[in-house]
Lab assay of single mutants.
Amino acid sequence: GATAVSEWTEYKTADGKTYYYNNRTDESTWEKPQELK
């Protein structure tokens, strides 16, 4: 099967917290998305 390329990108805020942003859905989350686990 084809490997899905994750749409999630990991970013850090100014105070060093990590969050994740999805370019396709324009969604952001503090929790690590399922695709990255």
Results as ranks from 00 to 15, higher is better:
residue 23 N to K: 13
residue 21 Y to W: 04
residue 12 K to H: 10
residue 32 K to D: 05
residue 22 N to A: 00
residue 18 T to I: 14
residue 27 E to A: 04
residue 28 S to R: 15
residue 36 L to W: 07
residue 10 E to I: 06
residue 9 T to Q: 13
residue 2 A to P: 14
residue 2 A to I: 14
residue 27 E to G: 02
residue 34 Q to P: 15
residue 34 Q to W: 10
residue 20 Y to F: 06
residue 5 V to H: 11
residue 30 W to P: 07
residue 6 S to R: 07
residue 31 E to S: 07
residue 4 A to F: 08
residue 33 P to Q: 02
residue 6 S to C: 15
residue 31 E to D: 10
residue 12 K to S: 08
residue 37 K to P: 10
residue 29 T to G: 03
residue 22 N to P: 01
residue 25 T to V: 01
residue 5 V to E: 12
residue 33 P to W: 02
residue 15 D to Q: 06
residue 25 T to A: 02
residue 28 S to Q: 10
residue 34 Q to Y: 10
residue 5 V to D: 12
residue 2 A to N: 13
residue 35 E to H: 08
residue 22 N to F: 00
residue 16 G to L: 01
residue 1 G to A: 11
residue 30 W to D: 09
residue 34 Q to R: 05
residue 28 S to Y: 15
residue 24 R to V: 15
residue 7 E to R: 03
residue 12 K to G: 02
residue 4 A to L: 14
residue 23 N to A: 15
residue 30 W to T: 10
residue 37 K to T: 14
residue 10 E to R: 01
residue 23 N to F: 10
residue 30 W to V: 07
residue 35 E to S: 12
residue 23 N to Q: 12
residue 5 V to F: 12
residue 34 Q to T: 11
residue 3 T to V: 12
residue 18 T to A: 06
residue 10 E to Q: 06
residue 8 W to H: 01
residue 34 Q to V: 10
residue 6 S to K: 07
residue 6 S to A: 09
residue 28 S to H: 15
residue 4 A to Q: 13
residue 18 T to P: 05
residue 13 T to F: 03
residue 28 S to M: 15
residue 5 V to Y: 12
residue 13 T to R: 02
residue 11 Y to T: 06
residue 19 Y to V: 06
residue 31 E to K: 05
residue 13 T to V: 01
residue 19 Y to I: 10
residue 35 E to T: 05
residue 2 A to H: 14
residue 6 S to V: 10
residue 12 K to E: 07
residue 1 G to Q: 13
residue 14 A to W: 04
residue 19 Y to G: 05
residue 27 E to D: 04
residue 5 V to K: 12
residue 15 D to Y: 04
residue 6 S to L: 09
residue 29 T to K: 07
residue 7 E to W: 08
residue 36 L to Y: 12
residue 23 N to V: 12
residue 18 T to Y: 09
residue 22 N to L: 00
residue 34 Q to L: 15
residue 24 R to H: 11
residue 29 T to P: 02
residue 30 W to M: 10
residue 11 Y to Q: 09
residue 15 D to K: 03
residue 14 A to E: 11
residue 32 K to N: 07
residue 37 K to E: 14
residue 3 T to A: 13
residue 14 A to F: 04
residue 28 S to E: 10
residue 28 S to K: 15
residue 4 A to D: 13
residue 35 E to A: 09
residue 34 Q to C: 14
residue 29 T to A: 08
residue 29 T to W: 07
residue 36 L to M: 11
residue 21 Y to D: 04
residue 17 K to A: 05
residue 32 K to I: 13
residue 36 L to F: 11
residue 31 E to H: 06
residue 4 A to S: 12
residue 10 E to M: 05
residue 22 N to M: 01
residue 11 Y to V: 15
residue 9 T to M: 11
residue 11 Y to D: 03
residue 13 T to N: 07
residue 3 T to D: 13
residue 10 E to T: 04
residue 1 G to E: 11
residue 3 T to S: 15
residue 16 G to V: 00
residue 32 K to L: 09
residue 13 T to W: 02
residue 14 A to Q: 11
residue 28 S to N: 07
residue 21 Y to F: 05
residue 18 T to F: 08
residue 14 A to P: 12
residue 27 E to I: 05
residue 8 W to A: 01
residue 33 P to C: 03
residue 30 W to G: 05
residue 28 S to G: 11
residue 30 W to Q: 07
residue 4 A to G: 15
residue 20 Y to E: 02
residue 32 K to A: 06
residue 30 W to R: 04
residue 28 S to W: 15
residue 16 G to S: 01
residue 9 T to S: 10
residue 8 W to P: 01
residue 24 R to M: 14
residue 18 T to D: 05
residue 11 Y to E: 09
residue 16 G to I: 00
residue 7 E to H: 08
residue 7 E to P: 06
residue 28 S to A: 12
residue 8 W to I: 02
residue 37 K to Q: 15
residue 10 E to L: 03
residue 14 A to H: 10
residue 5 V to W: 12
residue 21 Y to N: 03
residue 34 Q to K: 10
residue 12 K to F: 06
residue 16 G to R: 00
residue 14 A to N: 09
residue 21 Y to I: 08
residue 24 R to L: 15
residue 1 G to Y: 12
residue 15 D to R: 01
residue 23 N to D: 09
residue 30 W to E: 10
residue 2 A to R: 13
residue 3 T to G: 13
residue 35 E to Q: 08
residue 19 Y to R: 05
residue 37 K to H: 10
residue 27 E to T: 08
residue 1 G to M: 14
residue 11 Y to S: 06
residue 15 D to T: 06
residue 32 K to H: 05
residue 16 G to D: 04
residue 21 Y to Q: 04
residue 35 E to L: 04
residue 9 T to A: 11
residue 34 Q to F: 11
residue 24 R to D: 08
residue 37 K to S: 13
residue 29 T to S: 11
residue 11 Y to P: 00
residue 29 T to R: 13
residue 36 L to T: 07
residue 28 S to P: 01
residue 2 A to D: 12
residue 24 R to A: 13
residue 7 E to N: 07
residue 7 E to K: 03
residue 17 K to W: 04
residue 34 Q to N: 14
residue 33 P to Y: 03
residue 29 T to N: 03
residue 24 R to Q: 11
residue 30 W to Y: 10
residue 5 V to M: 12
residue 32 K to V: 11
residue 20 Y to D: 02
residue 10 E to H: 02
residue 37 K to I: 15
residue 22 N to D: 02
residue 20 Y to P: 03
residue 30 W to N: 08
residue 27 E to W: 00
residue 20 Y to K: 00
residue 14 A to T: 09
residue 18 T to S: 11
residue 23 N to W: 15
residue 20 Y to I: 00
residue 17 K to V: 05
residue 17 K to L: 10
residue 9 T to Y: 09
residue 31 E to L: 08
residue 31 E to P: 02
residue 14 A to K: 11
residue 10 E to Y: 03
residue 13 T to E: 03
residue 8 W to V: 01
residue 32 K to G: 04
residue 37 K to L: 15
residue 17 K to Y: 08
residue 4 A to H: 13
residue 25 T to R: 02
residue 23 N to C: 15
residue 30 W to K: 04
residue 31 E to V: 11
residue 21 Y to E: 05
residue 1 G to W: 11
residue 6 S to P: 11
residue 37 K to M: 15
residue 15 D to L: 04
residue 27 E to R: 03
residue 31 E to A: 06
residue 27 E to K: 07
residue 8 W to G: 00
residue 3 T to H: 14
residue 23 N to I: 12
residue 33 P to R: 00
residue 28 S to F: 15
residue 17 K to I: 07
residue 37 K to A: 13
residue 3 T to F: 11
residue 13 T to K: 02
residue 12 K to N: 06
residue 22 N to W: 00
residue 16 G to Y: 01
residue 8 W to N: 01
residue 27 E to Q: 08
residue 33 P to H: 02
residue 1 G to L: 13
residue 8 W to K: 00
residue 17 K to S: 05
residue 8 W to M: 00
residue 16 G to M: 00
residue 9 T to L: 12
residue 2 A to W: 07
residue 16 G to E: 02
residue 12 K to Y: 08
residue 22 N to K: 01
residue 30 W to A: 06
residue 19 Y to P: 01
residue 34 Q to H: 10
residue 21 Y to S: 01
residue 25 T to L: 06
residue 27 E to H: 03
residue 13 T to A: 06
residue 30 W to I: 07
residue 25 T to E: 02
residue 31 E to W: 05
residue 37 K to V: 14
residue 25 T to S: 04
residue 7 E to L: 05
residue 32 K to T: 09
residue 6 S to M: 08
residue 2 A to T: 14
residue 13 T to Y: 03
residue 16 G to W: 00
residue 35 E to N: 09
residue 21 Y to K: 10
residue 32 K to W: 04
residue 35 E to D: 11
residue 20 Y to R: 00
residue 22 N to Y: 02
residue 18 T to L: 08
residue 16 G to K: 01
residue 17 K to D: 10
residue 37 K to Y: 14
residue 17 K to T: 07
residue 15 D to N: 06
residue 14 A to L: 09
residue 37 K to D: 13
residue 31 E to N: 06
residue 1 G to S: 14
residue 31 E to C: 15
residue 6 S to Q: 11
residue 23 N to E: 13
residue 33 P to V: 02
residue 29 T to Q: 13
residue 36 L to R: 07
residue 5 V to A: 13
residue 10 E to A: 05
residue 37 K to W: 15
residue 35 E to W: 07
residue 4 A to P: 13
residue 24 R to E: 11
residue 24 R to F: 15
residue 13 T to H: 03
residue 19 Y to S: 01
residue 33 P to F: 02
residue 18 T to E: 08
residue 17 K to P: 01
residue 1 G to P: 14
residue 4 A to V: 14
residue 9 T to R: 10
residue 21 Y to L: 03
residue 36 L to K: 08
